[in-house]
Design a protein around this nucleic acid. Structure first.
Length: 291
DNA sequence: GGCCAGGCGCGTA
DNA sequence: TACGCGCATGGC
């Protein structure tokens, strides 16, 4: 077995913030690097000044899969320039220059976020890890490294019983994940074709899946399909909008939804991720970074 | 020990 | 359309 390595020049790319920011759940910090599985490849990423180094366990001839996953060709300056010029966005960008959006595989992203409802990010990581251990096929790792698994296929989870899923700590989410996997396995929704659709029809397709509401649909539309105006409204973002844009007022959810669609411009999804990260990491009395 | 977590689905009004 | 509630589980 021969490992492979590569080096990518990057500007304004905060790898640690990006991989730990609650959009993907399979990255583990190991010393000064990040280890994870992308598709069926184990990979170790390391940030160095002006570059990201990558190492795999098996030979790699073409690194486009990783360039795509990390969105290395996106010019962050162009995206930040599209943000509204207001104080909350300035603070959010100031708190973390280099936060990026990944481009994840749709099924893994969808399944992970079905597991996410009323869970903290650390718990989502744990659930996803258990699903991979139990239902994913093993992938090659470097000699002496810990075993690693791919994310389970649709078919494998469609065959899993609700009880087996509950053993992965899914709780009341287990029937949702099972039902969605089965629906996809039957071909009732084709995730591969959603990228051909405009935002609204793509969202409608996702909303037809059990356990998928507007918030989870928007996470998948943003993190897996790259719709730049998908804007997941979760508890953190609702808190952010209330505190930062409507202080001392009591906007209703309908007002916040309208605001989220109209205020943040052509890259509102990215803006949302900056707000999310800002709210989770800014100092709160007596607390460190939320997990 | 109580509150809350990158919600959803369903019943009521 | 707009709330309220139950649903498992664990971190803090």
């Amino acid at each position: 077995m021969t490992s492979s390595s590569a080096s990518f020049a990057v500007e304004h790319y905060d790898l640690a913030a990006t991989l730990s920011s609650g959009q993907a759940f399979r990255w583990r910090q190991v010393e000064d690097a990040w280890e994870g599985v992308v598709g069926s490849r184990w990979v170790r990423l390391c940030q160095e000044p002006g570059r990201i180094r990558a190492r795999t366990a098996e030979p790699v001839a073409d690194w486009n899969w990783l360039r795509h996953y990390l969105q290395l060709d996106v010019r962050l300056e162009d995206i930040l320039a599209a943000f509204p010029d207001d104080e909350p966005m300035r603070q959010s960008v100031e708190s973390c220059r280099g936060l990026r959006l990944l481009r994840q595989e749709p099924w893994e992203c969808l399944a992970s976020f079905i597991c996410s409802s009323t869970k903290q990010i650390t718990q989502i990581r744990q659930i996803v890890a258990l699903l991979c251990q139990r239902f994913g096929h093993t992938v090659a790792v470097p000699n002496g490294g810990a075993a690693a698994c791919a994310f389970p296929t649709v078919q494998r989870l469609a065959e899993a019983s609700e009880a087996e899923l509950r053993q992965c700590k899914l709780g009341f989410r287990a029937p949702y994940l099972a039902a969605t996997a089965r629906k996809l396995a039957r071909g009732e929704v084709d995730l591969a074709r959603l990228s051909e659709l405009p935002l609204e029809p793509a969202r409608e397709q996702l909303l037809a899946l059990p356990g998928v509401g507007v918030k989870i649909a928007d996470c998948v539309l943003l993190f897996a399909y790259g719709f730049p105006q998908a804007f997941p409204l979760d508890v953190w973002i609702i808190k952010a909008l209330r505190q930062l844009y409507f202080p001392n007022r009591r906007p209703k959810m309908a007002r916040l939804r309208r605001f989220s669609r109209t205020h943040f411009g052509s890259q509102s999804g990215y803006a949302q991720q900056y707000l999310f990260h800002y709210m989770r990491t800014k100092r709160r009395p007596g607390k460190e970074v939320a997990s």
